[in-house]
Design a binder for these strands. Sequence first.
DNA 1: TTTTGAATTAACAATAGTGTTAAACAATGA
DNA 2: TCATTGTTTAACACTATTGTTAATTCAAAA
Lengths: 207, 207
Amino acid sequence: MSKNKTSTEQSILEAAEKEFLSQGFARTKTTEIARLAGVNHAMIHYYFRTKENLFNMVFQKKMMILADSFFNIFEKPQPLFEKVRYVVELHFDFLVANPMLPFFIYSEIINSKEKRSLLVRSLFPKARVTLAKLQPDLDAEAAKGTIRPMDALDLIVNIISLNVFSFFCLPLFEECEANGMKSIETKGFLEHRKKSNVEFILSGLKK
Amino acid sequence: MSKNKTSTEQSILEAAEKEFLSQGFARTKTTEIARLAGVNHAMIHYYFRTKENLFNMVFQKKMMILADSFFNIFEKPQPLFEKVRYVVELHFDFLVANPMLPFFIYSEIINSKEKRSLLVRSLFPKARVTLAKLQPDLDAEAAKGTIRPMDALDLIVNIISLNVFSFFCLPLFEECEANGMKSIETKGFLEHRKKSNVEFILSGLKK
DNA sequence: TTTTGAATTAACAATAGTGTTAAACAATGA
DNA sequence: TCATTGTTTAACACTATTGTTAATTCAAAA
């Protein structure tokens, strides 16, 4: 038994991941997943029963990756300024490795209260811990007068905003270049934004 | 003739706008648009021939609104710091009036090179003018030593990032509240972010 | 080698959603 | 009033996509 079950099941999952991530649930066709995976399309129903089941496997996995990604970075004990720089850079690198992830998750939670609730329940406990540790550091620095008073949640939202949005911009700048509109060399766009974000966030912290 | 053509055509357009904005092209059903508009679903094909035609009407209109929104705000002649504050606030207010717009546009351009190109060609000329005016102001202030050297494009991307992302966060914070996770009073979340973004951006500009 | 059960295939059923059509209807102008 | 033209309706055709099934293949254990 189990001739090459893992191989088939795995290649379906990989193809599904690729399709769902780039197209979203609604645009993705199970036939196309099967074609990509190089298997008969009945296999998808054999292993996962429904498109929705298959989607949920992918979604759950990606949601966990997203939930873990950010807040773990904060764990390393460091002085505030180095920590902020480090967090911004590592979060940015995480996005380099998972450029479609935030958009994928957001697209799918927007029309599903269950999924939204699932995500929030995954994020909340970690976020709470991180905020509870970060806020005192910010308060201490503010008391010393090295930074302006800063809400930890705002800082985190700002970091995520600037980093994630850099990836949202990427296709537009690439399109500019493709249309011969020289606005910025797309080649180094992400590298540039990474530096720019670090500087802007550190500068935004200061008095 | 034209019994109440405008009424039917208009209500289809309004229902279509609502559905496409919240669900995107792929999830939206023309039958549901018809139901929402209170018309026979053949009317959609009578007035617009295809779902895609109808979608393009909505998309084109929304894209124009988006393209006009941001850069016009910069036109008012003002000292730099007041101008930046003013731009951030007005852009934020624009998003209050059009909360789904950025996500809608982005979702649809991501898988369509034509639409991406269309958007870029709409944005580019205005952006160019705005940048060409803004950069000298930034350079002058930097020469005076009131701000750190700053790339105009980075500043604009930062403003859009922080503002747009505040609206992306909203459903998550609402969901937190719904699940009894008290992280922030959702009631005032947007007002809070508006202030926070202005301060952070101004602070990020300074030396 | 035979048996067993999982894996695979092709063909098909079911459904949902888009688009078409012919006939009925309503408004307007002659 | 009648003819014309644009509007609306219900019924249907077409298509794409998901999901099912029965028959077949294959690998391993007895």
